[in-house]
């Protein structure tokens, strides 16, 4: 379970080592075509820390999250939780894992059963794991709803009686019910109104401190990721192309894709936005069915040379604790301005 990424976190809670997840193609007729949704991803997350995972649609963020949870068997690779390889877990061990690891999805509408009252939704995990009963259970559920900032009377309502932000609070309450150590958050604020997003981001951070939670925080919103993460991984077509502490990633990005991604985010201030230097990427994301040879980014990369088409760049520690896969990473400078 040693990999470069463990250096970032000497005492990691989660270590992912060369994780791969391949799917048979959805675009039916071509038989043996394979989508390499996640193609050799490695990282670690320290206890109580947050790793932000960013990248454009289809780059494999959700697939990584699912595979880390062992919800869906990985094609290959290992995931260590508290030092144990959970990809091999079965039966009782797997049940234990379901208590320790949780996931929160983007859509608070579909993740709650509309026919259950909030009280029943929050009692369910305790019942499944036979943890509390009677008055103790009631007290525990009331404590939960309070922890996510909702009033007690919310317990007797149904999900549809709440706004999107409130529903996401309920989802969060359910996720923390069994006091997990690790939560995969897959775009947990993306479906919310802008005026509500920051409330929920604040809630995630507060709970992290109170409960010493560890997060894998998946998002395409770079400003939220910068705010919430300790470390950041940038994905492109199934691979992590850059990984490091968030200060390093944002103030000194080493991969041209990271830099382009940052400069494509429009800043909410006209003067700054119009005058900043922008890197424009040519063309579209290539098909994951048929990723480019060599460096997968070469078809859009402003720095690409002949070598990039032929040779896949090595995963290198270019600065201390700052990894990147690019032949010309030394030519990339400056973060977001």
């Amino acid at each position: 379970m040693e990999n470069e990424a463990t250096v970032l976190n000497p005492d990691p809670l989660v270590v992912v080592d060369n994780l791969k997840k391949y799917y048979a193609s959805r675009q039916g007729n071509r038989k043996d075509s394979v989508v390499k949704a996640v193609d050799g991803v490695s990282f670690s997350i320290g206890a109580g820390k947050t790793l932000g995972l960013v990248g454009e649609s289809g780059c494999g963020k959700s697939t990584t999250g699912q595979a880390v949870l062992n919800l869906d068997r990985a094609t290959s690779g290992q995931v260590f939780f508290q030092g144990k390889d959970i990809t091999q877990f079965k039966g009782k061990a797997l049940r234990y894992l379901r208590k320790e690891i949780q996931i929160i999805f983007q859509d608070p509408y579909s993740s709650l059963n509309s026919r259950m009252r909030v009280r029943d939704i929050l009692e369910e995990p305790f019942k499944i794991h036979r943890l509390y009963r009677g008055r103790e259970l009631t007290a525990e559920v009331e404590k939960l709803i309070d922890m996510v900032g909702l009033p007690k009377n919310a317990l007797d309502k149904y999900p549809h009686q709440f706004s999107g932000g409130q529903r996401q609070r309920i989802v969060i309450a359910r996720a923390i019910a069994l006091r997990p150590k690790f939560i995969v958050c897959d775009e947990p604020v993306s479906a919310l109104d802008v005026s509500v997003q920051s409330q929920i981001v604040n809630l995630f951070r507060r709970l992290q401190t109170e409960l010493n939670l560890t997060y894998l925080f998946i998002s395409h919103d770079l400003s939220i990721v910068r705010h919430i993460s300790d470390q950041v991984g940038v994905m492109y077509l199934g691979k992590i192309v850059e990984l490091g502490d968030k200060q390093a990633i944002f103030s000194k990005p080493l991969h041209p894709y990271t830099k382009a991604l940052m400069s494509a985010v429009p800043l909410p201030h006209p003067e700054t936005q119009r005058n900043r230097e922008k890197i424009k990427l040519k063309g579209d994301l290539p098909s994951p069915l048929n990723p480019p040879t060599g460096c997968r980014f070469h078809t859009r990369c402003p720095l690409a040379q002949e070598r990039c088409k032929r040779e896949e760049p090595a995963w290198r520690e270019v600065d201390a604790k700052h990894w990147v896969a690019c032949h010309f990473a030394e030519g990339v400078e400056e973060g977001v301005q």
């Binding site: 981001v201 400003s223 705010h227 200060q247 301005q337």
Partner: peptide, 9 residues
């Protein structure tokens, strides 16, 4: 309410 992409806060 929007976090600033350009600073660590």
């Amino acid at each position: 309410s929007i976090p600033d992409l350009t600073t660590d806060y």
